[in-house]
Design a protein around this nucleic acid. Structure first.
Lengths: 252, 252
DNA sequence: GTATCATTGCGTCGATTAGACACAAACTTA
DNA sequence: TAAGTTTGTGTCTAATCGACGCAATGATAC
């Protein structure tokens, strides 16, 4: 089969009409954060994203993009929705950016209609080195509550990602990708509370969490805090993976 | 914005590289069924699918395709995954079909790499009028267990759709789109049992189902059967929609 | 050195829910 | 009219959920 190749963009060959956008979640200081980039000239904020090369699946393309933006391999990634409204890429600030920058190598290519596949990613905040792409001058974390207007339909994409994440929480385990290897029960609880934007009972949370059988309790405690030292835990990866696959609630 | 238009196919203008495939589920004779089409010349079976026009979102395109295949409007539709392996459309039987048919209006166009958005649809079996598309000679229901080799990665798409449907069952109501307006509790139970491929306790099923508050019990019974006449139910659409949105289990 | 105080570990209690099963009523067929 | 299924409804016990109590811990203030 002949793959139809396209106008090139920075010496890469990308598929026409198809893009991807990533909502990268991190957790730090009891805050849920999103990784954003800022356009060089328009100074507008956007979700990190990219295009698909001829030899890539869309997952591979997303992995590549996130590697470039975060420095990380092996990121937890999940497709959650395709955004395809014909109007969505009108008045594209990327085009505007390229015009104003003078560097407009393949301007025409950016003018086409794009259908974007939305991914969300969960990463260990402390391991990420935010790195802007070639048409951005900044890449940084923003608290979820402090994100304001993004380009195109990126606010909508972000909201849908969050909604999906909250749903996911109800039938899949979560935390391995967002916390460091060893963590305390209160830390895990803060994560859940932050995502759900709601307080949970400390004791019931622990009981429920332990009942899943995805945690290993360590003998060590986390010292240095101002109060009673909590035990450290780690995820039991074998059971964690099983729970990811089979879900946490039987349901039927 | 200028939408990049493409080689035309049957006087339509479709977006390059993007296709959609629909897994249409129906329920009849206590069997879960899938709507399939058969290629004119190669006689291979496939999922109904299509392409996206310049003025369509991908959901609108899927709705159009399903209207053509089933005669129905207002179909329950859900995106579940994008299939984008670079190898997936190699040795494309559609191209082969067009070659053998002699009618090869835009053969080149079909040779490109396609990224396909998978949808699943739930329909009332009795209301569907299966209608083949222009490169197929047959459109018909198949029992889920009796589907054998489909073109490309369509088996994989079908399996993923079924998996998603089963997951959905655990936190969303189901049945309104697959059953007729009035139905009996045993009928609803058979539907669940068929999807889950597992038997459920009659009495516990009824208790759980009623507890959701999405059913109206009618005074009428379904007569004509060989045994005690069961009551008829209908869905309480208001509560059904609410349950679809909020989910059935709190979780957290 | 000792009291203070927020936080953690572990446990209890009642109410609700889930799973297994019993029994009578209904309706067709033999 | 009896037999054989299927349906409607109810019961029992065990497990689970949500709300809360209390003692232990460990840095900080005095």
């Amino acid at each position: 089969m002949t793959v139809t190749q396209n106008t090139s963009f920075f010496d890469q060959h990308f598929l026409n009409h198809i893009s991807l956008d990533c909502v990268v979640f991190g957790f730090h200081d009891n805050q849920l954060k999103v990784l954003l980039i800022r356009r060089k000239f328009t100074k507008e904020w956007a979700l990190p994203g990219g295009f698909v090369r001829g030899d890539e699946s869309i997952e591979i393309a997303a992995t590549r993009v996130l590697q470039e933006r975060t420095g990380l391999d092996n990121i937890f990634l999940k497709q959650f929705k395709v955004f395809s409204e014909p109007e969505r890429s009108k008045r594209n600030p990327i085009v505007q950016d390229l015009v104003e920058s003078g560097a407009r190598p393949d301007l025409e290519w950016f003018k086409q209609r794009f259908i974007s596949v939305g991914f969300y990613a969960l990463v260990d905040f402390s391991k990420v080195e935010p790195t802007p792409d070639s048409i951005s001058d900044l890449c940084d974390w923003k608290n979820l509550g402090e994100v304001d207007s993004l380009i195109l339909d990126h606010n909508q994409i972000l909201n849908k990602a969050l909604e999906t994440l909250r749903l996911q929480l109800n039938y899949q385990p979560l935390g391995y990708n967002l916390l460091s290897d060893r963590f305390t029960m209160p830390e895990l609880q803060r994560l859940y509370e932050t995502i759900l934007a709601k307080e949970l009972d400390r004791r019931n949370f622990q009981r429920k969490m332990l009942s899943y059988g995805i945690l290993n309790k360590l003998k060590e405690r986390k010292t240095g805090g101002a109060h009673k030292a909590p035990y450290l835990y780690e995820f039991n990866l074998e059971n964690y993976q099983k729970a990811l696959q089979n879900g946490l609630y039987g349901g039927w």
